[in-house]
Every structure is written in C-alpha cells, then in structure tokens.
Computed example of a mutant assay.
Amino acid sequence: MPDEPLLSIRDLHAYYGQSHVLQGVELTVGQEPLALLGRNGMGKTTLCLAVTGLLPTVRGSIRFAGQELVGKPPHRIAALGIAYVPQGRRIFPSLTVEEHLRLVPRRRRADGGEPWTEERIYTLFPRLAERRRQPAGTLSGGEQQMLAIARALLTNPRLLIMDEPSEGLAPVIVEQLVTTLRHLAQDGLAILLVEQRLAVATAVASRIAIMLSGRIVWETSAAELLGDPERQQRYLGVSAWQAA
C-alpha cells in the first residue's frame, strides 16, 4: 500500500502478568516526527517495549514498513530499521565511547542516503570525539545521552524511538538535544519521541499524541496543544507557567 504509514499500531493490548497496561492503542507514525506525551504510569514506555519486541505479551497489530512485528524477536525488529534509545540511556559504564560504537552492527541505510559512520557521529557530537577513549560511566548525563543516540544511529535506522531523552539533563543540554533531533528529522529519519516535558515535545514535533491509562485519548498539533491550557492540565498536569 503506497500510502501506508511507516509504523501503524492497531488495537494494541499489552500485559505485565495480569496487569492490562495497553488497552487498544491506535497510533501511526510517518516521516513527520510524532511526540507521545503523558504522565508517569500511563503506558508510554510499555508501548516502546511492545513495538521493539521487548515485551512479548501483546495482542493486536504493529506494522512497520508493511511487515507485521507482533511475534518477531527484538533482533529481527531492529534489523528491519527500528532503533530504540531507552529511558536512562543503558550504556555500559566500563566500556569506552569508542568501544560502544564498535559494538554496533552496521546496516545499509534503506533510503540510500549518507550512512552513519563513526566519523559522522563524531562530527555530530564533537564531545564524544574528545572523549572517545573515556569510560562511558565517567561521562556527564548529556554526554551519555549523546552516546545512546550515537549507538542507535549507527544501525542506520528508518525509525528512531526515544524514551524520555531529556530526563535529568540541564536546560542547555536539552536545547542541544532538541537541535539534534530536528536535524535528524530534516535528514529523513522518522522519530517517535516519548516525553513528559511539553516544551521539548512541541519543539521537536508538530504532531502530538496524548496517552492516558493505556490509550491514546487525543491527537493534535503542537500549536493546538500549546493553546489549550485546560487540556494541558487535564492530561499532563501542566500549569501555565510550566508550559511557557
């Protein structure tokens, strides 16, 4: 189907034991960045795990580039072109920056664009070049986030899923992160950004989805959400000064 979105999620249910976390999620992601917002405990990370195959107890449909993902193991899903930057970065503290990047399996870029290489990573993140022989556990939080993104990019994905990338970062580093994500989107990379910070989400994506209690309850534009303080408070617990 020529008009099929890159990622299409239909009637998705997911469980932790007997706990029914995702309750019929409907969502699509195309080439335009999509930000998924919601308070803690609403199911955002569970959705990321379901898409990447890290949460096997699911039912429904997750289609990526025309292929069904439900039932596929994580390494097969990654090979199709989905890269995941998890909440908390999940780097190996004892490995150097250089060792992290050398561990990544390399794949061709599906759209024929310039592939991601270590040299290109160091151009995007000069701080990593300066610290290439430094153990990752000694990096700052912002540098660790750069490394987590770099590791994902080296797989040359078609879709980058990022779970709470601004968590614990200083404002100046968050600004750099936003700039980087915008640059990646302009380069043709599809992005699903999971965030709690309204300002970060709306700075990266013009399309927003709100998750509440395991369901997508509202899809809107960044402009409409920013102009609706009542819904910001209802769905996100965001006051007017926080939104500003």
Results as ranks from 00 to 15, higher is better:
residue 218 W to K: 15
residue 205 A to Q: 00
residue 185 A to L: 03
residue 157 P to G: 05
residue 52 T to W: 01
residue 101 L to E: 04
residue 185 A to R: 11
residue 159 L to T: 10
residue 152 A to Q: 08
residue 134 Q to N: 03
residue 107 R to G: 01
residue 233 Q to E: 13
residue 79 A to R: 15
residue 234 R to W: 00
residue 160 L to Q: 02
residue 43 G to D: 11
residue 73 P to Y: 09
residue 172 V to P: 00
residue 95 L to A: 06
residue 240 A to S: 14
residue 208 I to A: 13
residue 146 M to F: 03
residue 98 E to W: 14
residue 238 V to W: 09
residue 195 E to A: 04
residue 242 Q to D: 04
residue 208 I to Q: 13
residue 158 R to D: 12
residue 100 H to S: 13
residue 179 T to M: 05
residue 65 A to R: 15
residue 202 T to V: 15
residue 36 L to Q: 07
residue 23 Q to T: 06
residue 226 L to I: 11
residue 217 V to P: 13
residue 70 V to L: 07
residue 119 E to V: 11
residue 225 L to A: 02
residue 43 G to K: 06
residue 111 D to N: 14
residue 56 P to Y: 12
residue 151 R to Y: 06
residue 32 E to P: 01
residue 67 Q to D: 05
residue 154 L to T: 06
residue 194 V to W: 02
residue 116 W to F: 14
residue 7 L to I: 10
residue 33 P to M: 14
residue 224 E to S: 15
residue 26 E to V: 13
residue 180 T to D: 01
residue 230 E to F: 03
residue 158 R to G: 06
residue 180 T to N: 00
residue 126 P to C: 10
residue 4 E to L: 13
residue 89 R to A: 07
residue 38 G to E: 07
residue 6 L to Q: 05
residue 105 P to M: 03
residue 238 V to M: 09
residue 9 I to T: 07
residue 27 L to W: 06
residue 8 S to G: 04
residue 168 G to L: 07
residue 239 S to M: 08
residue 166 S to H: 06
residue 173 I to D: 04
residue 117 T to F: 06
residue 131 R to N: 10
residue 55 L to D: 04
residue 16 Y to Q: 12
residue 234 R to D: 00
residue 28 T to I: 01
residue 3 D to E: 14
residue 68 E to A: 13
residue 24 G to L: 09
residue 29 V to A: 14
residue 123 T to H: 12
residue 150 A to L: 08
residue 16 Y to R: 12
residue 141 G to H: 13
residue 4 E to S: 14
residue 244 A to P: 00
residue 86 P to R: 11
residue 107 R to D: 01
residue 211 M to H: 14
residue 224 E to C: 05
residue 53 G to Y: 08
residue 90 R to P: 03
residue 7 L to A: 05
residue 101 L to G: 04
residue 4 E to M: 12
residue 96 T to Q: 10
residue 143 E to A: 01
residue 17 G to W: 13
residue 26 E to C: 15
residue 18 Q to E: 11
residue 164 E to M: 05
residue 60 G to Y: 07
residue 224 E to G: 05
residue 178 V to N: 02
residue 74 P to K: 03
residue 206 S to E: 15
residue 114 E to M: 04
residue 9 I to L: 05
residue 236 L to M: 03
residue 140 S to V: 10
residue 162 M to D: 00
residue 23 Q to P: 00
residue 174 V to K: 01
residue 31 Q to A: 15
